[in-house]
Amino acid sequence: MNIQTVINGKKISVNVKNDMRLLDFLRDELELTGTKEGCSEGECGACTVLIDGSPVNSCLVMAFQIDGKEVVTIEALDEDGNLNIIKDTFLEEGAPQCGFCMPGMVLSAKGLLDQNSNPTRSDVKEAISGNLCRCTGYTTIEDAILKSAKKLGGKNG
């Protein structure tokens, strides 16, 4: 079917097959391979993207379901600069190890910080509890999100 959607700020109109997952649409059709596939069942969060601002597992969404919606992936051009601040803070805090969970983590972080500019550590844990990471023990990721909140607060406030 034909869908109208906005991907990373760009309006597109495309035909998608009924049985195509959003994850495959992004990775195979649009070649946006920053979105990762770790389990295909909504259990790992590696495929997290933002749909209308909310973090969603793109392996559980069909491509046609984004009709009329706005999708943000890790490749998004950073219009408000917030995504870059989060990425830089992840680097400063030494968050990534193998990196496979990272794009999903960053988008879960953005989803949280867009809603809650002053999260507690337990808010952060809640927000990334659907994103598995086997390498880091999560601490540096949490630190990076808390520090991003401070930086963004400073910037926006």
Binding site: T35, D88, E92, P103
Partner: peptide, 15 residues
């Protein structure tokens, strides 16, 4: 900083 850090964070590392 990790030399491969920003690529991993930005989804640019190629698996």
């Amino acid at each position: 900083f990790r030399v491969d850090g920003i690529d991993k964070i930005s989804g640019r590392s190629i698996y």
